[in-house]
Each structure stands twice: as structure tokens, then as C-alpha cells.
Design a binder for these strands. Structure first.
Lengths: 247, 247
DNA sequence: TGTCATGATCTTGTACACAAGAAAGTGTCC
DNA sequence: GGACACTTTCTTGTGTACAAGATCATGACA
């Protein structure tokens, strides 16, 4: 097996993205290349590769000779991403409705279950929900649409996950997904798209309620999970990031 | 004015992309980082930044310690891109049809003209055509959809441009665009989407007819335009790229 | 105390050095 | 001539040095 190109940069890219999704890097946080290089035990070179990729994807911004910053929250942008998601997913659902036997057996096994066998953990449901919607696009068969949809999915992940903290949102998700699968199976494209639009819009509305305060709470919870019993010890730079502003 | 971040890499990125669109870098061509660095008078560092971005966008591929290569043609991929384009553009057109006064005045000035005032130069028509379709997405108002659409547009540019070499394709474009603008103005969403789908599909079908031979001819024409009278002098590596295979 | 100038420190952007390994070239043996 | 082993020459991936400039700290002065 020939070695992968830019292996170190690739790994660091994933690790940094995990830090975003684990609420370790929050909107407004500032950091430097040297900081990350030391944390990951490499030089700045692969770190820069990863950072510029994440910058291009919209997660970070760099100020000339003055450090990096996690892009502040932009709810208009989240709205646009949810909107794009809807467009892609309705297109996928329309196509699936035209198929004789849509290849969605695995989804039925997960979502068409009695209420007693439903997942309750918000983290797990969030992951399953992502997988559900991504699976719709994969099944529709256009890899490019699937790729774009995955990127969108990742970009809204940070707010989307917090939308499953209430049990009633989890229940609604199970019901909507079950209904959608049945409608697709019965080739009822128009109804399926209407349902899907409402489902995604509802989730987008929930995401609007996410506050920076909730993210900080989530960070604290995640930190305690990693280092139980230790008090918070904010670094020099992370202290500078407060107060965090919404744009 | 504060200086732009990564200015050199950004400029080189644009220059390399221009080389692709000017048929100087054709599918299958091989090259090295040092080669480009010398051509642009910089070190490898900014060149690498540009190359990895272009790699991520799907234009190039890198082999571990063995040079770079322009990705070979993949018609399935082009089909998927045309398909995604259709999805995005029909979504935009549906929204525009719901507006009282769609802000498309500039497009009417360009496309609703008597046949005598039409452009004939394939290059110019190709650029106008791109602008037309991008404008539809801008007018629809979702910046994220617009951004994705622009990326798709760039990726199919190389085959799309060659679709305007016949006068009848140019005429068809003028007619379709004019009809589409009128349908949008009359809020006839369904008809507009049907027309648009046919229009893009037709162009995608034309793109299927593009051959590697046509690209080589285009490269030769472009080269003669830059250096009139000089004979071709293939470099050591570009000779290695033949025979070019379609995937 | 508040403000401004000045110097020290930090940060990114670029160039360059070196290592690991791939590819190509060269000579030898049959 | 052809196959094979060996050497030489690239080529990318990574670490590091240095420059330009932004930011911060310090201290003088009103």
C-alpha cells in the first residue's frame, strides 16, 4: 500500500474538526498555529494545511499576522444552509419516489420501530438523524449532490445537535422519519416533499433558538466528560474571546 | 488597508485555474511543484497551498513523492454536475417566479435583443451564458446555494465552453434564455422549470460530445494566440502524458 | 489618573533544508 | 538483445529560519 499524500495534515484536519464538534473550539475563540502544532506534536506546516482547508470551508478566519479565530455565529448563514439542505433533500426524495424499490431497508430498520425501542440519547439520535438524511441522498445516486449535502450537514451540525435535547423533538423526529419512509415507499412524492420541508424547517427554527450560552454549557459538559473532577482553567487567549458576539 | 492573508498563494491559485481554463493544463497532464514555483517566481510553499486547494476541488491529484496530475475526464462526474446545476437552478427559478418583480433587468438587456445584435464569439457567449445562470441564483437570494452553484459552474466550464462552437447552439441559447426570462416574468414556474431542465440537459448532452482531441485543438489555438508563429515545443513531462485516457 | 510614544514580543507568510521514497537511468550478466 | 541489480536523480512531505508587521506592555509626561 502506497503512503497517503499529506497524511499528517489530513489527520490534523480531522482532529481540529472534532474539536469544533466537541465544543472545544467555540465561535469567537482565538488560537494560533504554534499552539495547535504543539498540541498535536508536529510543526506548523501540516497545521497550516488543515487550517486553510477549514478556513475555506467557512469554519475559521485568519487575520494577517494576528492569529486565527473561529467564525462567529451567523444565523442568516445557518438559514441558508438549512434551505440548501431542503432543496437537495427534496430533489433526492422526488427521485426516490420514482423508483420501484427505493433502497432504504437499513433506514426502515432504524426508524420504523416501536416507541419502546427508540433511542433517547441526544448525541446518538443526532448522529442517526444525520445518517438518515445523508442516506436519502446516497440512495438518490448523484455523488456530487451527496458530497455537497454532506458538507452542508457538517456545517450545521453544531446547532443541529443541540436541537435534540428535548424528548419531544426526538419523538417528532422518529414520527417524521417513519412517515417519510412510508410516503416514499408509496411513491407519494408531493406529500413526501411537503413533509420533508416542514421537518427540516422545524429543525431550522429550533436551531435559531440555540444560544452561545448553550454552546458554553455544552463545552463545560464535554470537558467534564473528558477530565472528570477538574475545574475549568481557561487559557490566556480563550479568556480574550469573551464577550462573544452574535453577528 | 491591511494586507490580505496568503496573498501569493491566492494569486497562484487563480493563475493555475486560468491555465486549466485556457487549455494549458489538460486532463492527464503531469507537472511538479518546483516547475510551477519557477514559472511563477516563488517558492514551493504558496504553490503547494494553491495546489492542495485545487486538489480538494477535484481538478488535480497528487501521487506520493511522484508528482501531480490533472484529473482525467470523467463523464459520469460531469453528468452529476449538470444534474446538480439543474436542481439548483430550478429551485432558484421557482423562487423567482414567486416574486412580484424579479430583479433580472440586466439579463433582459443582454438576452432580449434582436438577432442582429447577438454576440457570435463563442468565448464571449460562453461567458455570458455562465453569467446568466449564475445571475439566476444570485437573484434568488440564497448565498450558499449561489456559492455551490458557482463552484459547479467552474467545474464544468472546460466542456461547457466548447459547446458554443456551433452557431446553432448559440442561437438556441439566446432563444431559451429569452423564453425563460419571459416565463419568469409571467410567474409560470412549471413551464420555466421544464424549459430550464431541457436547456441544461441539452447542453449536458452536447458536453458529452467533447473529446480529448477537441481539447488538444483548443490548446493549440490558445497557444498560437499567445505566441503567434512559434511551433509547439512539448516539455519533457507533458510528452509523458500521452496517451490520454478517458475514464 | 489618563494618554501617548516606544520598545519587546508574538504571529503569520515565505523561503529553504533535509528525509523518505519513487522513478528513471546505467551497467552487468546471460 | 533482454532481464535484472544497482545507482543516480527527482519529487513530495515536513521541519525550521527569518522577515514584515500586528499586538501588547512599559514607562514618560501632562
Amino acid at each position: 500500500m502506497t503512503q497517503q499524500a499529506n497524511q499528517a495534515a489530513e489527520e490534523i484536519y480531522k482532529k481540529i474538526k472534532d474539536e469544533i464538534f466537541d465544543f472545544q473550539l467555540l465561535p469567537g475563540d482565538r488560537f494560533t498555529e504554534t499552539e495547535l502544532a504543539e498540541r498535536y506534536g508536529t510543526s506548523r506546516t501540516p497545521v497550516r494545511g488543515a487550517l486553510y482547508r477549514l478556513k475555506h470551508e467557512g469554519y475559521f478566519e485568519v487575520q494577517f499576522r494576528s492569529g486565527w479565530r473561529v467564525r462567529p455565529f451567523d444565523f442568516v448563514h445557518f438559514d441558508e444552509l438549512y434551505d440548501l439542505r431542503t432543496v437537495l433533500e427534496t430533489a433526492a426524495v422526488e427521485r426516490l419516489c420514482r423508483l420501484e424499490n427505493p433502497p432504504l431497508g437499513d433506514l426502515k430498520a432504524t426508524w420504523l420501530v416501536p416507541a419502546s425501542r427508540r433511542e433517547h440519547d441526544a448525541r446518538i439520535v443526532a448522529a442517526l438523524d444525520e445518517a438518515f438524511h445523508c442516506r436519502l441522498l446516497e440512495a438518490a445516486g448523484n455523488r456530487e449532490m451527496s458530497r455537497v449535502h454532506s458538507e452542508v450537514t457538517e456545517k450545521i451540525r453544531i446547532v443541529r445537535r443541540l436541537g435534540f435535547l428535548e424528548q419531544k423533538r426526538i419523538d417528532a423526529t422518529y414520527e417524521d422519519h417513519a412517515k417519510l419512509l412510508k410516503l416514499i415507499n408509496n411513491h407519494r412524492a408531493a406529500d413526501a416533499c411537503t413533509l420533508l420541508r416542514g421537518h427540516v424547517t422545524q429543525n431550522g427554527t429550533e436551531a435559531r433558538k440555540i444560544t452561545i450560552h448553550m454552546l458554553h454549557e455544552a463545552r463545560e459538559r464535554a470537558r467534564l466528560l473528558r477530565n472528570p473532577g477538574k475545574d475549568a482553567a481557561p487559557s490566556r487567549r480563550s479568556g480574550k474571546s469573551a464577550p462573544i458576539t452574535l453577528s
